[in-house]
Nucleic acid binder design. Sequence first.
DNA 1: TGTATTGTTATACTAATAGTATAACAGCCC
DNA 2: GGGCTGTTATACTATTAGTATAACAATACA
Lengths: 134, 134
Amino acid sequence: MFLEINLESEIPIYTQIRNEIIKGIALGQLVEGDGLPSVRQMAIDMGINMHTINKGYNFLKQEGFLSIHRRKGVVVNGPDKYRYNAAFLEILTENLSPIIIEAYTRGVRTDTIERVIKKILLSVSVPVEGGDHD
Amino acid sequence: MFLEINLESEIPIYTQIRNEIIKGIALGQLVEGDGLPSVRQMAIDMGINMHTINKGYNFLKQEGFLSIHRRKGVVVNGPDKYRYNAAFLEILTENLSPIIIEAYTRGVRTDTIERVIKKILLSVSVPVEGGDHD
DNA sequence: TGTATTGTTATACTAATAGTATAACAGCCC
DNA sequence: GGGCTGTTATACTATTAGTATAACAATACA
C-alpha cells in the first residue's frame, strides 16, 4: 500500500488511513473488488498498531466503501454502496461552513475559493468540459 | 452574546466559540472596535468554564481577529489584521481536500459541490452579481 | 491613590480519545 | 486440521477537553 501517513499530524492516524483510501478510490487506484492488505500486514508495513488500522477499515466499512469478510479480508465496494444522499449533503455543508466562512472573512474572494475547489477536484479527476464523474 | 454553542457536539467548545465569532465578523454583527464580553461574564452567560472561553479568545487573538488588553478587555480588529496570505491558502487547500475528495468519490457532481459552496457564502454575504466581499 | 475589573498564569482534577500491546476467539479457505 | 482472516477483550500510556480554585498583574476610573 502507498498510503501517505503523517505520524506527527494532529489528524488521527485512522482518519488519515480513511482519507487516503477514499482518495485511492477517487483516483481509480482502488476499484470494486480490489483487496486491501490485512490489518496485521498493513500494521507491519506502516509500523502502526493493528487496532489503529482496524479502526480505519471499520469506518470505511460503516460508510460503505469497504466490505470485510472473515477469511477473504478487506475488499473495495462498488459506487452504489457509497453513493451520497441528502443527509450527506447536509453534513457536507456543516463541515464546509466554518472553513469557507473563515476564508471569506479573511478576504478570500468567491472566485478564489472556487479556484481552490477546482484545483482539488482536478487533482483527483480528469478535466472534462461540461462532463463529470460517474 | 448570541453564540450558538452545542455542548453535545464533538467539536471542542472553544473551537465553536472561535467559529461563531468569525461568523459574527463575516455577518457584520461584529465590526472593528466592538468589545466582547469578558471571559468571566461570557463564562457565566453560557454556563461554561472561564478557561474554555479564554482559550477560544486566544486562538482568535493569535489569528489576528481580536486584540486583548489587560483592563479594556477583548476588542475586534480591523480586516487588515486578519487578511489572508499564501500560507493560508495552502492550509485552506489541505483542510478542504479530504472533504471535497470524499464528496467527489461519493458521486457528488462538481456543480453540486459549487452550489453548496455558494449557498454557504450566501448565508454570510449579500449576493452581488459579479461583485464581492471587501 | 485606591479599587475593582480585566486578562493571565498556575495547579489539580475528571473524562474522553488516540494509540499501543497482548491475547484469545471465530469463521473459513486450502 | 492448519493457518490466515477479522473480531473482541483487556490493560496501559499519553494527550486533550473541560472544570474548578486561586492568585497575580495591568489599568481605567472614581
